[in-house]
Computed example of a mutant assay.
Amino acid sequence: MIGKIFPKSAGSFKNRIRYIFGCTKHDHEISGIRTISFNTMSKDPLPGVLQGNEADLSEMIREFDQVETLRRFAIDSDKPIKPVFHAMLSLRPGESLTTPQWRSAVEEYMTDLGFDETNQYVAVMHQDKDHQHVHIVANRIRLNDDFSMVKDSNERSVSLESVSGIEDRFNLSKAPKPKDTWGVSITHAELQASIRDNDLPLKHKMIAKIAGAIEATNAVDGDMFTFTRLLRRQKVYINLTLNDEGQPKGISFEFGGKHISGRQLKRSRLTWHKLTTQEGIHYDPETIHQLQDEIARRDNEEQERARIYYYEFIAVNGRRRKPVYVRFTAKDYEVQKLIQEILELLDVIFDALFKPKECRLKRNYIEFIPGTPFNVPDEYELTP
C-alpha cells in the first residue's frame, strides 16, 4: 500500500468532494466508485451522482463548508487556515480489500493522523483498472467548543508508520521506504505509474543513484571528478551550465535519455551550490576545463562502443586468396572470445594439413568507424 497526502487548501471543499465522487475529470480511468464511509449528517450522495443528480452532493459540500464559518464567528479570528485535507491509500495491482476492511483501514489511518469523531470526513474507493485506491477528504477543524484544528506536524512520517501498520494487518505489499526515494514526494501520475509497473519512477531512480554516488564520494573524500566517474558507472551523466566567468552555476543529470536539473530533482540537496557546499563534493575552480573533459568522456566512451571492428582471415598456400571478414563491435566480448578460439583451432588444423613453412594463417586487425570509407582490396601481396 502507498499512502499520499495532497497539499492542503483553504476555502470550499467543493472541488475535492466532487473529484472523489467522479464529477470532475480524472487523470486516470475509473471503472468503479464505491462509498466506503462518512460521518456527515447528509446522506451518501453517490446514488444520486450515478443518476446525474448532485443535490445530495451539494448538501454534503455545504455541511463541510459551514464548519469554517462557525469557527470564524466563534473564535473571532481572521488567521488564515487550510481546513481541506485530502489523502489517498493505494493498493498494488492484484490486491484488494472488502468494504469493511477498507472502512477499518481508513478509520485506523485517520486516528493515527490525529482526527477523531468530531472531524467530518468522507472516504470513497476508486477501482482504477486493476487496482483499488481510496480517497479521503476530511475537515481539519474539529466540531468542539474551541474549534481546534488537527495538527499536521510530522504527518508524513506518521502516515508512513500508519500505512505500514495497515499493510501488516491485512498482509499487503510494502511500499517503498523514504530512503529509496531520498525523501522526494511522488506526484499522483508518478504514483499511479509506480503502482502499475511495480517500480520506482525514473526521477526517484535517478535520485537513488545520485545519492549513492554522493555517499561513495564522501567515503573516499573524493571530489567532483570522483562524483562524475561514479555516476558514469551507473549510466548517469551530468551537464553543467556556466556563468559569465566560465564557472558552473547549474547542474543537470541525464539517465535513460531523460534530462532533469538538480533543482527539479531536489533543490535542497542536488543543485550545484548544495553539492559543493552542503553535500561536501570538493571542487576547485581552477580545474573547470579538466572537469569538462572528464564529463565529455561519456561521449568518447559511447563512440568507442559504437565503432565496428573486423577480423581479417587470409589462408596462404602459395597463392593469393581473398580474405574473409568477421564483423563485431567493441562490446561483443563473447564474439571476440569465440574468434580467438576459432583462430587457435585453425592454427592446429593448418599445422596438421600443411607444412608450417608452406602454409600459415595470416591475421590482420582492421578498424572501421561508421561514416568513413571502408575499402577492402581484392588481392593482397603476400609476404614470403
Rank of each mutant, 00 (worst) to 15 (best):
E358Q: 12
D244I: 11
A74E: 06
G262V: 02
G3A: 10
N53S: 13
T217W: 01
I61F: 12
S37P: 09
Q336W: 00
R140W: 04
M149H: 05
I195E: 08
K129C: 10
M224G: 04
E302D: 09
V184N: 09
F350H: 00
T69I: 06
I30A: 03
E107T: 09
W272M: 09
S159Q: 02
E117S: 15
I214E: 07
A189S: 14
L291H: 07
S162Y: 03
P100I: 10
K43C: 06
R18K: 13
F350A: 13
E167N: 06
A123I: 00
K362R: 05
I214M: 07
E279A: 13
H135L: 00
D78L: 12
R263D: 03
Q278C: 06
K25Y: 03
R298M: 02
E254L: 02
K322G: 12
I281R: 01
A87Y: 02
T69H: 01
V326Y: 14
K14A: 12
F374E: 00
D293W: 00
T226V: 09
L361N: 14
A87W: 07
Q278M: 07
D152W: 03
H188A: 14
T111C: 09
R360H: 11
P370Y: 07
L361R: 11
L191R: 13
R267H: 09
G11A: 01
G22K: 05
Q127S: 09
K357S: 13
T241I: 03
F253I: 02
F38L: 04
L353A: 08
T40P: 08
G22E: 01
S31Q: 05
A213P: 04
V326S: 08
S194L: 00
P100R: 06
R327W: 00
P201V: 14
I339E: 03
N375R: 12
A352T: 04
A175E: 07
S159H: 04
I207N: 13
A330F: 03
A123C: 01
P100C: 01
L91T: 04
R321S: 13
R321G: 07
I61M: 10
F255C: 05
L91S: 09
F255R: 06
A216P: 05
L346W: 09
K362W: 05
N154D: 07
T187A: 13
F313W: 15
L275T: 02
H289L: 12
W102T: 04
V324W: 00
F313N: 05
N154P: 03
E54Y: 08
I238G: 11
G250E: 08
H135N: 13
